[in-house]
Design a protein around this nucleic acid. Structure first.
Lengths: 134, 134
DNA sequence: ATTAAAATATACTCAACGGGTATAGTTTTG
DNA sequence: CAAAACTATACCCGTTGAGTATATTTTAAT
């Protein structure tokens, strides 16, 4: 029950870019050094943030990455979902077929976990990267 | 970011026993059939619940499992922790050494995740198995 | 046009974990 | 003592996590 390392690196990369406030390109090497992230791993993670519209990139000399949106419009949930996909506390909340009692009218455990999952999502959605800037 | 299958089975086994309200022993075979849990896997999971003091067992003819406490005194968190161990949203919340920026005075991301983790724990702690009984 | 600096795409590795199964043993009661 | 139960330990095997390697493409400066 936790976020993975890639997501943790993603948080830190986004926070680092948020400090620049979209003014300039920052290359992977710089992010990697400041945030202590293995560079090849970082380079694999970044495209996920780009596909999610959180970050933009520029190739070639002088290129790098920058935030694509205002820090206050990027939530922790955005980053988690960009890297790990949607959050499901229990796999039966992803697909009912996973429930071995599948067909049982409504599972009380299932519903309770769903409530907690919704709470978790909304809490991650409330925190944005502007709040995280000192 | 989810609970594992063993924990889901654990929830269901405990809920099933809660319905019996500690009055009698229920053997693994019966739980396995009613809750559609592979019996050998169930037999591996149960000792975790026993070590946590949630369930008690009796060997021999007529034996089986029963709740060791009142259903209202068993929370979802109790079962999660019995089977998966403590909840850590991020591994740096388990041990600071996992933070590659280890030594950074205080990480804002770390602190925010901790808040959310505490919320999640308390929410899982609030729901007990008496509530889950129809 | 060429070169160098960047990101991108794809594939690979390797250990750990998830989800189970198998075998052998112990306790209890009849 | 035999049968019914739980217990302990060890194995299996596919997937995921975390990261590395190689080759390619885009871009800007010269």
């Amino acid at each position: 029950m936790n976020i993975n390392q890639a997501t943790d690196y993603g948080f830190r990369a986004v926070l680092y870019l948020a400090q620049k406030d979209g003014r300039e390109w920052t290359d992977a090497h710089t992010i990697s050094e400041h945030e202590v992230i293995p560079i090849r791993f970082l380079l694999k993670i970044m495209p996920n943030l780009i596909r999610a519209g959180i970050v933009k990139s520029q190739r070639g000399i002088g290129g790098g990455y920058a935030l694509a949106r205002n820090p206050k419009d990027v939530s922790l949930l955005d980053v988690v979902e960009a890297i790990e996909g949607p959050i499901y506390l229990n796999r039966c909340l992803e697909n009912e077929d996973y429930c071995s009692k599948h067909g049982a009218p409504v599972c009380k455990i299932h519903r309770t976990l769903e409530e907690i999952q919704d709470l978790l999502s909304s809490e991650l959605g409330r925190r944005n990267f502007a709040d995280l800037l000192d």
